[in-house]
C-alpha cells in the first residue's frame, strides 16, 4: 500500500527510489558479504585485544619475575577456561593479522576485484581458524 502511494506521489524515478529505500540499515536483517564480515571482525578483534592488554602485561611480568611466579602463571594458563580464553585471543590476533595483511595487499592494488576480494576474505577466515586449531592441538 505504502509503495503504491509512493509511486503515485513520486513519478520521478529518483524520488521514488529515495522514498522506498531503507531509511536505516538493520544489521540483523541485511546479509553481509564476506568482506564485510572480515572487516567487522577485524574491528572487534582489535578492540578486544586492546581491552586485554593490561592482563597480558601482568601475565608477562608474572612469568618473568621469579621461578615461583613463572610456575603460578603457567598453572593459571593451564586452567581449561583460561585456555579457551587464550585460544579466543589467539584467534582474534591471527584474524586481525591476516585481515591486516589483506589490507596491505589491497593498498598495493592486489585483490581489489570483487571476485578476488571475496576469495581473499574467505582465505583470511580459513587461515586464521586453521592456525588457531593447530595451536589448540599443540597446547591441549
Amino acid at each position: 500500500m505504502r509503495l503504491r502511494r509512493g509511486v503515485k506521489k513520486n513519478s520521478n524515478p529518483l524520488r521514488l527510489h529515495m522514498a522506498t529505500r531503507p531509511k536505516y540499515l538493520n544489521l540483523l536483517q541485511i546479509r553481509m558479504p564476506v568482506p564485510a564480515v572480515v572487516s567487522i571482525m577485524h574491528r572487534v578483534s582489535g578492540a578486544a585485544l586492546f581491552l586485554v592488554l593490561p592482563a597480558l602485561l601482568a601475565w608477562w611480568q608474572c612469568s618473568l619475575s621469579s621461578p615461583d611466579t613463572f610456575d603460578a602463571s603457567k598453572s593459571f594458563t593451564a586452567m581449561p577456561l583460561v585456555k579457551i580464553g587464550i585460544l579466543l585471543l589467539v584467534w582474534g590476533y591471527l584474524h586481525h593479522l591476516c585481515a591486516g595483511v589483506r589490507h596491505l595487499a589491497s593498498d598495493i592494488d592486489l585483490g581489489t576485484e570483487l571476485k578476488s576480494a571475496r576469495f581473499s576474505s574467505w582465505l583470511v577466515l580459513a587461515v586464521s581458524i586453521v592456525l588457531t586449531l593447530l595451536i589448540a592441538v599443540r597446547i591441549w
Partner: peptide, 9 residues
C-alpha cells in the same frame, strides 16, 4: 597502532 584503531572506533 592501538591508539589509531581505538580512535577510529
Amino acid at each position: 597502532h592501538a591508539w589509531v584503531g581505538m580512535r577510529n572506533i
